[in-house]
Write a protein that binds this DNA or RNA. Sequence first.
RNA 1: GCUGGCGUAGCUCAGUUGGUUAGAGCACUAGAUUGUGGAUCUAGGGGUCGCAGGUUCGAAUCCCGCCGCCAGUACCA
Length: 489
Amino acid sequence: MKESEPITPASRKSETIEPQNVKGFRDLLPRDAYRKNEIVSVIRRVYESYGFLPVETPGLEYLEILLGEYGDENTKQIFRFKSPEEQDVALRFDLTVPLARIVAQYADLPKPFKRYQVGSVWRADKPDPGRFREFTQFDVDVVGTSSQLAEAEVISAVVKSLREIGVGDFTVNVNSRRVLNAAISKAGIAPHNAKKVLRILDKFFKIGHQNVMLELTEGRIDSSGDKIPGLGLKENSATLITSVFVIALSSPGTSRKKMLDFLTEHFGEESCSDLINLDELLESLGLGSNVVRFDPTIARGLDYYTGPVFEVNLNNKPLFGSVAGGGRYDNLVSRFTGVQLPAVGFSIGVDRLLAAISSEATNANLVDVVVTIMERNKLDEYLKIAEELRAAGIRTDLYLGTEKSLRKQLQYADKLNARFAVIVGSNEFQNGMVTIKSLESGSTLASETSDRTQWLKESREKQLEIARRDLVTEMKRLVDKRKLLITLE
RNA sequence: GCUGGCGUAGCUCAGUUGGUUAGAGCACUAGAUUGUGGAUCUAGGGGUCGCAGGUUCGAAUCCCGCCGCCAGUACCA
């Protein structure tokens, strides 16, 4: 386009680029990004208190690292590319496989290796509400021990994290692959069907006994009219395996001890030994049946689990999906080294957690104070004020715009949901004073009065005019006072 | 992937059996108020009606294909 041609809105429009997200990818705007940061830092602090060590690995891995034993069925969910050198590379779909890679690659890492890692993973599934193609996992793992202390500690660390985040009541559901395998062989189900049976049983809670039976046998038609093919099991096999679970879920209640009695009776002590062991360790950690339950229908989709598997669900959002999952995977590292290195891990789905909390929208203050600017020839004074407040640990936003009217600047502060505004104009400069305006009390006032002049008058009366030298201590007092109120509520 | 529904302004939607220049509310911008965020009032900007064909004198409206979104379902290492 020639420079002489005028740029009309219409012509500009045709040249602009549509701002949009790639399907399944999303942005986090300040409010959510802030909360996510808070969640992450709480978990990090808890994990470090357990002695877990941080690692970071690249988002991109060689395709063969990720494919491994998972087989073709899952490969289509991997984002894969050609590198500039024409090598097959792919975005990681979890943090567990990269962990297996690094413990194989760096043989001198301390064993057992306790590590935590937070980062994005990518899966090319169909996006759903609360489910994206890029999401954040926060993993904690122990590699190099078959001791069930490892299970106990990762469960304990996750429980502590979720409690400190404040997600409300939740339950850690635990099962063992060995129990499931025993159940499957006892029901006379062929090994090649085992995986599919597990997937169907995993939905027991969601779709109910009847539908599980149908999916195991002739199939069913869902509420949208879609046909779901059945597995074609014989009626008695399906009855055998589901009936055990029906009893298991109803009669022993939520007591781990009773569930263990029931499971050992049906599947033998050998199949349940890891759960029996784990139960004792959990008890000594003070994690009772109200928090950690044994649920024989939990399967988890992952093929690589070999022992106990875990899943965390929020009690007040039973159909929300699990916010964390994990288990023991004793064979994963051997893919790289040929040597078996037992491991156990637990992964928190940070974005799901965020979604679960964000639906109860709260108004977090992202900024404590906005310092407004009245006198353009005294910018150094405003800078100084802002720096002093920051040095006192107050989150201070100095107004950086060029808008001169105080009205506009206060609108800006309001939009940020700041708690206070500091106003220093020519009057204040003359008297060595500053004005502190509480934006919160002003907004409660606004809901009570509809007359503008009345509102302005009253809100100005509530402003605090203090000596310039007292600003920091007074501001600090106001900010801390409010914090205390919040924790007491 | 499968089944169904829906695509009109940033958002929620209206738009008569096809008929001039496509509307409303909210949001946004400016002013009323040049030192006070709300509310109110006034004015303003913003649309190739998802995209591409077809039927027609004439299509946001009817037909076909594609794309996207939503719900259910499958899958989810």
